[in-house]
Design a protein around this nucleic acid. Structure first.
Length: 948
RNA sequence: GCCCGAGUGGUGGAACUGGUAUACACGCACGACUUAAAAUCGUGUCCCUUACAGGAUGUGGGUUCGAUUCCCACCUCGGGCACCA
């Protein structure tokens, strides 16, 4: 037998596949289809990344398995080739981007072919091909027609190095995603796509998909759906009203001021009427000068200014409240104005504290006992008001607490209020009665006297109690005290403890909340739901369920809002699809007629953007100056191009019919192939590409151009491959792994196995070149097993083979490739131990290996005398009856500790198993002199003998 | 701060629905083959211990005959979002 020569074998079969094209597919209505998709690569100058190989191999394995299960499989590939790196390279070298792209795609194609991926190469697409981007432009015109593409002047994130406008998604920590330069703000007219019109459907329709849960969650968070109320606050002495958006209309009675975002339109109207016009103008100016990061960073202190002399009226109680302008309120979310409820919102609280604004409690936290003291249904609820007197000794900085002798609980000095009694007087009285201290100074502060409610069954009185508790803070003026009655003394012990010990000392959560209120920081204010207080007729109601009712009472409306913003679709760059419109002096914006598409990129000499931020296209007069398609008058072409997310938003549709000249894809082909059955890609594309393409797809669906409302049935994601130190791989760090050299030394099959075996597919992992040896060895051992093929009837191997079929088949479906390979390794180990192995068993091993290592499997398959491809053979099935041998090893535990094993026939009855176990000397040792209390038997697995 | 995910040998990692923790692989050690080395094959390899017995899945509790797996609290790391009212 010849030694395993990977290079010879891989080249041989790649040549065969190149000429026979086994993976080229046709639409075949007789056959069920399977559309397997990976994110088409950006052909960078660095060549193929080991990360590409990981995700491509995974999908290749799935595609190859599906073919052998009888599916008509479409597994296509293409190039997402517009983009900045190519353009920057062109700027530097003067080589045309189209030429750079051609060179890079050639390299990628060669590398992908060297790895044996089963792509249908006849369907290759390239976003920079005019025959392709003709349809990207065509789809844009449909957006324009429907009013979903529009121009808008806005301050954009501007990268001063790349000279390009960036979408919010492309700004990371205030810096350009590509080059890391600090982003600036700049006013510019931009093309927008109205993705927000689809926000609700993009959220809801996730329910229909089989995306990984974390992907759904991340998209939902990004879309940011929220329901709440829009409520109008009239401005006193004016017809104007301030409309605010709130998710907490239940806190309306706690509003102590309203806030406008600095860009709010009402400011212009009222700034001159305010008593402090200059101060307000000054504030708005400073806000405008702040950069995006400073303005939106929650950590920086909140600033603001009051519109003095102008007041808003709270519609629920006609209370007048001040109006503030503050930059912690965002102009482009909700209504650009909020009602501030500092008692129940962290941000409002922080702001109110800084500017000494009122804080008013309207929600009392509510605790209902549901266990030992649950309310009795048949009894009435008796309301009681109580106080907790919190006494501090300023000399020692300690607090007075009580340990109750009878009740087994610990608290502050506490007691009920008497009829008509003032809360502070009540608290003084309780302190006097229980401790004897007579000189107390009441400390009034926000949070003191705030209520906490609770309900429980009072056993000793046989009644249901509804308790309203308040905390009152005192400081001892001196330690003078009167004698306490012996009766009181018998009930409890008094103690003085440190501030930090108070929280843990208290038995009940409601007292702990009262205590927290007094700390007076935003961490301890209560922002949850509870019972309304200080809310006129709504007092006492449950705050969560009353939201819509209060909204109605305030004359407001229940609405839905989203965090998602419209998509900035313009780029001032060369290497992108030209936006196919002209600007005509007479007619305005006029779309290029569809029959004149594509608007091709002209060749230019200089690819650098102009200094004023225009695309380099603007400098080509011959191209820019054109005629208006409508009036034939002079017009100028739009010089903005599309972002590189455009071409990738619909590429999977083009695969269905890649060379169609009449439509972007024939309806029949789309009907057959779409939706994509399984799409694997990176988590980094969850909120950009994946969301954008779902949006485009839904739009095309609404036009009746695609058959389904969702493009992808199932979406999974791979973990990143990091460099050996755990850092990101990058050319600048010099830690990039070149697949070419690995293929040369150990072969493409070994590389594929290695990448699948290195760890769980969905988790990030650091590259380790040393361990490839194991994968290479694995292939060599299978190769050598050929020598053992002979006639044998080994029952043990039969079980091993069927177990392996089951494990490999199931693991591929769950993308657990590492354990699938380990199952095959176990089989190989068992095969090696055997004198001979049967041809049938070996064939199955080769068939299971085929999707992972397609070249060597094909070679071994041919060695076995097969005339057709292993990749066309039917996927092996396992026989459930052959998964277990006739005897099993059962674990014997005594009191849960493993003490030995027994060999017995499968499904031996429990009594026999128990006897066998107890009879074994090494088990008897542990049960001697003890009585068997219980025996637990798990069939064919385990027996646990409980003795005592 | 909020939302996901993860913490298991020297390393990557495995463990079905709660049932022998450490499969599989890398590395390492020893042995065989060899003049020698590489390659290959064999044996061993969680900790402590001569052995028996113990102990160990980030930490601390809980449920259970039995917990890597379920529950509670906490710590650490990775990813995403971050003034969205």
């Amino acid at each position: 037998m010849n030694p395993y020569d990977h290079d010879k074998i891989e080249k041989k079969w790649q040549k065969v596949w190149e000429s026979k094209k086994p993976n080229k597919v046709k639409e075949d209505p007789q056959k069920k289809k399977f559309f397997a998709l990976i994110e088409f690569p950006y052909p960078s100058g660095d060549g193929l990344h080991v990360g590409h190989i990981r995700s491509n191999t995974a999908m290749d394995i799935i595609a190859r398995k599906r073919r052998r299960e009888g599916y008509n499989v479409l597994y296509p590939i293409g190039w997402d080739a517009f983009g900045l790196p190519t353009e920057n390279y062109a700027i530097k070298t003067g080589i045309q981007p189209s030429v750079v792209t051609k060179n890079n795609t050639d390299t990628f194609r060669r590398q992908l072919k060297a790895l044996g991926f089963s792509f249908d190469w006849s369907r290759e697409v390239n976003t920079t091909d005019p025959k392709y981007y003709k349809w990207t432009q065509w789809i844009f015109l449909q957006f324009l027609k429907k009013g979903l593409a529009y121009k808008k002047k806005l301050t954009i994130n501007w990268c001063p190095k790349d000279l390009i406008g960036l979408a919010n998604e492309e700004v990371i920590d205030g810096c350009c995603e590509r080059c890391g330069t600090k982003v600036e703000q700049k006013e510019k007219e931009q093309w927008m796509l109205a993705i927000t019109k689809y926000a609700d459907r993009l959220d809801n329709d996730l329910d229909e998909t089989d995306f990984l849960e974390k992907i759904k969650i991340q998209q939902r968070n990004w879309i940011g759906k929220s329901e709440g109320a829009e409520i109008e606050f009239p401005i006193k002495g004016s017809e104007k009203k301030i409309k605010v958006y709130t998710t907490r209309p239940d806190t309306l009675f706690g509003v102590t001021y309203v806030v406008l975002a600095p860009g709010h339109t009402l400011i212009d109207e009222f700034i001159n009427k305010a008593d402090n016009t200059i101060e307000v103008a000054q504030y708005i100016k400073t806000v405008r000068e702040k950069d995006d990061e400073e303005r939106t960073n929650a950590k920086t202190a909140k600033t603001g200014v009051e519109l003095k002399g102008i007041r808003a009226i709270n519609p629920v109680n006609n209370e007048e409240v001040p109006i503030w302008i503050a930059d912690y309120v965002l102009a482009d979310y909700g209504t650009g104005a909020v009602m501030a409820v500092p008692a129940h919102d962290e941000r409002d609280f922080e702001f109110a504290k800084r500017y000494s604004l009122d804080v008013k409690q309207v929600i009392a936290p509510y605790f209902e006992n549901t266990t030992d003291l649950a309310l009795r249904k048949d009894l009435p609820l008796v309301e009681r008001e109580i106080i907790h007197a919190i006494v501090k000794n300023p000399k020692t900085n300690k607090f007075l607490v009580i340990k109750w002798k009878e009740h087994n609980w610990q608290s502050f000095v506490t007691g009920g209020m008497e009829k008509g009694e003032d809360i502070v007087d009540a608290a003084r009285r309780e302190v006097l009665e229980e401790s004897g201290y007579k000189n107390l100074k009441h400390i009034n502060m926000p949070g003191s006297a705030w209520q906490v409610h609770s309900a429980f069954f009072a056993k000793h009185k046989n009644e249901n109690r509804y308790m309203k508790a308040r905390g009152i803070l005192f400081e001892l003026e001196n330690e003078e005290k009167i004698g306490v009655s012996p009766e009181e003394q018998g009930k409890h012990d008094l103690m003085w403890i440190d501030e930090k010990e108070v929280g843990p000392f208290l038995t009940y959560e409601n007292q702990r909340l009262v205590w927290n209120y007094l700390e007076g920081n935003s961490k301890t204010l209560y922002s949850g739901f509870g019972k309304l207080v200080n809310s006129s007729e709504f007092s006492g109601k449950d705050s969560e369920s009353i939201k819509k009712e209060i909204t109605q009472f305030a004359g407001g409306q229940w609405v839905t809002k989203f965090k998602l913003r419209d998509w900035i679709f313009s780029r001032q760059r060369y290497w992108g699809e030209p936006i196919p419109v002209v600007h005509c002096i007479k007619c305005g914006i006029v779309p290029i007629p569809e029959k004149n598409l594509p608007v091709e990129l002209p060749k230019v000499k200089n690819y650098a953007p102009t200094e004023n931020g225009e695309s380099p296209l603007a400098a080509i007069e011959k191209w820019v100056n054109t005629k208006c398609p409508t009036c034939k008058g002079t017009a100028k072409r739009e010089t903005d191009t599309m972002p590189n997310w455009a071409g990738s938003s619909w590429y999977y549709l083009r695969y269905a019919d890649p060379s169609n000249k009449k439509v972007f894809a024939d309806a029949k082909n789309l009907k057959y192939w779409t939706p994509v059955d399984w799409y694997n890609g990176g988590m980094e594309h969850t909120t950009l590409h994946l969301l954008y393409s779902r949006f485009w797809h839904k739009f095309l669906f609404d036009l009746g151009l695609v058959p389904t409302s969702e493009p992808y049935k199932k979406r999974t994601s791979h973990g990143l491959i990091l460099a050996e130190g755990g850092e990101k791989m990058s050319k600048s760090k010099g830690n990039v792994i070149n697949p070419d050299s690995i293929i040369k030394t150990v072969g493409a099959d070994a590389l594929r196995i290695h990448e699948m075996f290195m760890g769980p597919f969905d988790q990030a992992i650091a590259w380790d070149t040393n361990t490839i040896a194991g994968s290479r060895r694995f292939i060599e051992r299978i190769w050598k097993l050929q020598e053992k093929i002979g006639t044998t009837a080994d029952e043990k191997l039969e079980v091993v083979v069927h177990k392996t079929i089951k494990k490999v088949s199931e693991d591929i479906e769950e993308m657990k490739f590492n354990t699938a390979i380990s199952a095959m390794m176990i089989a190989v180990n068992d095969f090696e131990k055997s004198e001979k192995i049967s041809r049938g068993h070996y064939e199955i091993l080769v068939q299971l290996l085929a999707p992972f290592a397609p070249h060597v499997s094909e070679e071994l398959w041919a060695h076995l005398g097969n005339k057709t491809s292993v990749h066309a053979s039917v996927w092996p099935m396992f026989d459930p009856k052959k998964l277990t041998e006739s005897t099993v090893t059962m674990t014997v535990q005594v009191n849960g500790k493993m003490r030995g094993t027994i060999e017995c026939a499968v499904y031996t009855d429990d009594a026999t198993v128990e006897k066998m176990a107890l009879d074994k000397p090494e088990i008897a040792k542990w049960t001697k002199d003890l009585s068997v209390k219980k025996v637990i038997i798990i069939k064919n697995k385990l027996i646990n003998i409980v003795v005592g």
